Amino acid sequence: MSPDRAPASAAEDPRAARTRARLRQALLEECAEQPLSAIGVAAVVRRAGVGRATFYVHYADLEALAVDACADV
């Protein structure tokens, strides 16, 4: 499967959408407690209840998650 098709498939999957929503919410909750620069992927995935590998399926890094989370605000 080409890399161009993978994100489209993931975007259509309701489970993936729920996971991304949980990650966005977890990041926003972490940001309410401390600055973004002090937050790591480990804290976000722990709060979201997902694995680190799952995080990287959806986002390249914490900055990508932050951009996505801020787009909803």
Rank of each mutant, 00 (worst) to 15 (best):
I39W: 01
R5T: 00
V57E: 01
A71T: 08
A69N: 01
L36K: 11
A8D: 14
R15P: 02
V50S: 04
G40P: 06
A69R: 00
D4Y: 14
E29G: 05
L27D: 00
R47Y: 06
A53Y: 13
S37G: 15
A11I: 07
A17E: 11
A60I: 12
F55A: 02
A60N: 09
E12N: 13
R18I: 03
D13A: 08
G51P: 06
C70E: 12
L62K: 05
A64K: 12
D4S: 13
A10I: 11
D68G: 05
A42H: 13
L65Y: 00
P14H: 05
C31Y: 10
E29T: 12
V67E: 13
L27R: 00
H58F: 09
V50G: 01
D68V: 05
S2Y: 00
E12C: 10
D72S: 05
P35M: 14
D13N: 09
A66C: 10
A17S: 14
R46E: 06
V57T: 10
T19C: 10
C70P: 04
R46G: 04
A11V: 14
A66L: 09
Y56M: 08
V41Q: 06
P14M: 06
A32W: 11
P35V: 13
M1G: 12
L23P: 00
V45Q: 03
C31N: 10
A48Y: 02
A60C: 12
D72N: 03
A53I: 10
V45D: 03
C31T: 12
A26C: 11
F55E: 04
P3A: 04
E30S: 09
A17C: 06
G40S: 15
P3C: 04
V73P: 01
L27C: 04
R24H: 08
C31D: 13
A71S: 10
D72C: 06
H58Q: 11
T19F: 05
R47W: 08
A6D: 06
L28V: 12
G51R: 07
P14V: 04
G49T: 10
Q25F: 09
I39M: 07
V57F: 02
V57M: 03
P14G: 09
A17P: 01
A16C: 09
C70Q: 08
Q34E: 13
R52T: 14
G49F: 07
A21Y: 02
A32F: 14
T54V: 08
T54I: 04
S2H: 02
R22Y: 07
V57I: 12
A66G: 03
E29F: 11
Q34S: 15
L23H: 00
R15D: 12
L27M: 09
E63V: 15
H58M: 12
S9Q: 15
R22I: 03
Y56N: 10
S9C: 15
A69C: 04
Y56S: 07
P3T: 00
R5Y: 02
A48D: 03
V67D: 08
P35Q: 11
A11K: 09
P7Q: 10
D72F: 05
R18S: 08
E33Y: 13
